[in-house]
Amino acid sequence: MSPAASSLGKDLVGLEDLDAGQIRSILDTAEPFKEISERKIKKVPVLRGKTIVNLFMEPSTRTRISFEFAEKRLSADTVNIAASGSSVQKGETLVDTARNLEAMKIDMVVIRHWASGAAGFLADRIPSNVINAGDGSHEHPTQALLDLLTIRDHTGRIEGLKVCIVGDILHSRVARSNIFGLLKLGAEVGVCGPRTLLPAGIGELGVTVFRRVEEAIEWADVLNVLRLQLERMKGGYVPTLREYNRVYGISTRRLEAASGETLVLHPGPMNRGVEIDSDVADGPHSVILKQVTNGVAVRMAILYLLAGGAPEQAEAAKQEGVG
C-alpha cells in the first residue's frame, strides 16, 4: 500500500481554507513534478482523458501559460476561454457560464476572474474541480504555493522565517494568499507599502506592518516584492512611479545596507525601475526565474492531487494491495 497525500477536497479556492498539513503535502508533491519538466519527454499520463477548461476572464499570460504547461505535461485535454470575445464579456452571468461548462461534461476548471469570490462561487455550483488562478483581490493560491516552494528550496524551511511582502497589499491577491500560507506554516510575516495601499485592519491578520522599506529589509530574511499596478497611480494611491521607486523600490543599495542575504521574490511581471531595480532582479538575491520553474511543478502537483480522487473511494484505495 502506498502512503497517501493529504486530501485537498474538491477545489483549491484559497490557502485560507487549507491547513498546514495540506499545504505541506502540496509542496512535497511538487518535488517529483519538478523532475518531469527536466525529462526529454515532458509528459506523464496522469490526466489522460481529462478535460480542463482554463477560464480566464481577466488578461493573464504568465499564469495561464504555466497552468497550460502543467496540464499538458499531465496529458490533459485543455480548452482556453479568454475574456475578449467570450460570452461572459457579452453579459453572460457567472452562473450561466458555470451551467454551460457543467453541461459540456468537463473535469476541471481553472478560473481567473476580476471579482473577489468568483472561484468559490463557481466551485459551489459545479461538480467539477475548480482551481482558483486569481479572483479579484482575494486569493491567488497557486502563486503563493510556488512562492512557498521557492522559499523552502532556498532556505530549507518556512517555519520561523521572516518574510516581508512589499507593495500594494490592498489590491493584491498574491499578498493575501502568501499571508495565509506563510502564517499557517509558522513564518513571521511583515508587510510594507504606502499606507494608501494597505488594507484596513491588516495587523489583525497577525502580520507586522513596516512603515519604511529600509526597516522591512533589515528585518526580513525574504522579500516578496509585488508588482505595482500602473492603474494605482491614476487612482491616486501613489503620486508618481518615480516617487514610489525612491521610497519603496528594492535596490541593491538598500539590500546591501541590510545585513544578511535577503532572498528576493517577485510574482511578475516586473516593472523594472519601479518596485524593483534591474540589478536586484538580475542579481544574486533574486530567485524570480526559479519561481517561474516551480510554478509549473506546483500546478502539476495541484492538478494531480485534485483530479479524480473522490473521498468515498478512499476506502477502496486503502484495500488495494500490491500491484
Binding site: 483581490s137 493575501r176 488594507p199 491578520l205
Partner: peptide, 14 residues
C-alpha cells in the same frame, strides 16, 4: 471597511 473586507479582498466603505 475592516478585517472581513480585508480578508475577502473586497473594497470597503469606512
Amino acid at each position: 471597511e475592516g478585517l472581513v473586507a480585508s480578508r475577502l479582498g473586497l473594497k470597503g466603505k469606512p
